[in-house]
Design a protein around this nucleic acid. Structure first.
Lengths: 339, 339
DNA sequence: CAAAGTTTTGAGAGCGCTCTCATAGTCAGA
DNA sequence: TCTGACTATGAGAGCGCTCTCAAAACTTTG
């Protein structure tokens, strides 16, 4: 199955290379009959334009890089990332872009790859996620003129200049915490996370909710975890010593770990301690008890990240775009509101 | 930061484009002094060869496609896949290849993309994983001359002609089941899976182990699950009615679901029912109780898949390579062997 | 029906590399 | 010092597209 060229397709269809190129790129001003004829030949031969030649001539590759600058074992264990990857992959497929994956496990790896990513012309734009507050990747990438969008709000200092797609973490946490207050719980704990803006925003929402209802936040009831189930388990064990009535976990994985810890101490959810999570991962609904949680639209997040990036690539230089998607509270048994 | 070309690097270093090209591609027969001078200029300027031009001229892109032909929600929920992706990404980084991600959620998506993947020249080779027995992707791809390796054994009918990297699922299951028999359990159940060769091989190992020790397999004690925690939970619920003393789960996620089901019925692991998993995911060690399981070398699997593919790309046509990696039993508390 | 405009098509250069082939440079041996 | 055998370097074609510009084919209009 020898690979054909534009020239050969043109020969078969009796037109020039240029005309075939016009048909492929959907240019106007082609006689309908000619367009039809060319399209038929393309379909029959299964012709696919050579992407190297294309990107050399047009200087764009239709490849996006999906970058996760600081992937730790524990970070990738969070089922959130596979879902994001899936969403982005789907959005790329739909828009005729190819997603290339760049995961960095060490800073040497990051260092080595950055240069390649930025300067080889292989990549038209970057979607950056799983970035931590202390990461230097974004500031490094900003020095080059490669377009990028971040998933999740960047640290405040840079947020204005960077395009990003985020979910309304603060509102979500506010919803979750308010829910617990309204159910009558007073000693409300939080399983928080560090070094990421999502965690910071969820923390802020949690605090606002309590404050708005006249409750003081007892710092002893706030424990720091990572985003894993195991982290949630450990943090909850510590929290249990403080005798909480309810707990807001910053992710579903953390919440599940918390539930396990609570039960291992011989207590029941929600009878003894109510639990609310965040994310609404598939496993939240299947958990025992089903988890009250804050649903975030991962698919839309991925889709919008890709579409925004396409937009930026087309119109560079463009003002930074900031998209914040709404979230919703999903009430299930773990918070004690339904039985 | 304008992008430089070979020609310009040559000008700065006082040599021709050809010589610079030789330096970059590590050709012999360059005076050490010249090579040094050129390398200095490259380093100082941060020059990166344009990858489109490179692949147009050399007709290879140094991009591999990572294909998951039939990704269901539940399949991707298995923490196994993120780890495989991570391993492959790492191996690609190391070997100066870029991994492009192709996840197909529907067969239309698969259809649309296959042609692009195969004929556009963007991709030098394919790593295929998460393929089911009924998938048609591999047979479709075989009609083209694009090199590929599969992760996991293909169905027997095609296995001989296809290069793959697998782990010794049968031996692992044999180890796991033997372990349970040796501990004195007799009514040993299995939480199995369908439509995948790994599951079939683990099933075979399970049965051999029982047979070798004179135990008959009670088919009522074999329940089919998918690879998710929720699936394991449901299947275990069904299995519990048959009164098993021990259970071999075909994955850690399934095992964790099983543990949850057992406890929900008020029974204890391992006191009432022993549980053994497969995979040795990070969460197996952190589970409560820690999970006895079969460790498979995911990192090596990914690394070998990439290295094998590189080899095949270089030497096409090449005989199919079959690599089967050893696994080992990791004994923890859930099987009742340690307390 | 000719002139002027408009639409459609083709020719040709060029994108930044690789790779072959020819030439310039180096060195040993006579 | 000159010749033959290497080794090191450069020139040039070509990879398969896109895109500009000019020419050809058609329309419209006075």
């Amino acid at each position: 199955m020898k690979r054909l060229t534009l020239e050969e397709i043109g020969q078969i269809a009796g037109v020039s290379r240029s005309t075939v190129s016009r048909v492929i790129n959907d240019h106007p001003n082609i006689r309908p009959a000619v367009r039809q004829r060319v399209e038929d030949v393309i379909r029959q031969t299964g012709y696919q334009p050579n992407s190297a030649a294309r990107s050399l001539a047009s200087s764009q590759s239709r490849v996006f890089g999906l970058v996760m600058p600081s992937i730790l074992q524990s970070a990738f264990a969070d089922p959130y990332y596979p879902l994001v990857i899936q969403a982005i992959s789907h959005a790329c497929n739909k828009n005729d872009y190819t997603p290339a994956l760049f995961l960095f496990q060490t800073s040497e790896e990051e260092e080595k790859m950055s240069q390649r990513i930025v300067a080889s012309g292989l990549i038209d734009g970057l979607i950056i996620t799983a970035d931590t507050i202390h990461s230097t990747f974004v500031s490094k990438i900003q020095q080059y003129d490669i377009p990028f969008v971040q998933i999740g709000r960047p640290p405040t200092a840079h947020a204005a200049a960077i395009s990003y797609v985020d979910v309304d973490n603060e509102a979500g946490a506010y919803l979750a915490a308010s829910h617990l207050v309204q159910l009558g719980y007073r000693r409300i704990g939080q399983l928080a996370t560090a070094h990421n803006t999502a965690g910071a925003d969820r923390d802020a929402g949690f605090r606002h909710a309590l404050a708005d209802r006249g409750l003081a936040v007892d710092e002893a009831l706030v424990k720091v975890s990572d985003f894993s189930e195991a982290g949630g388990y450990q943090a909850m064990l510590a929290l249990l010593d403080e005798g909480p009535e309810a707990v807001f976990a910053q992710s579903d994985a953390i919440a599940l770990g918390a539930v396990r810890a609570i039960r291992d101490r011989g207590l029941a959810v929600p009878e003894d301690i109510a639990v609310v999570g965040f994310d609404d991962m598939p496993l939240a609904a299947n958990a025992e008890p089903p988890l009250t949680t804050v649903r975030q639209p991962i698919n839309r997040t991925g889709m919008l990240a890709v579409e925004t990036l396409i937009d930026i690539v087309k119109t560079t230089p463009a003002p930074a775009r900031h998209i914040v998607l709404p979230v919703e509270l999903v009430i299930r048994a773990s918070s004690g509101a339904v039985n």
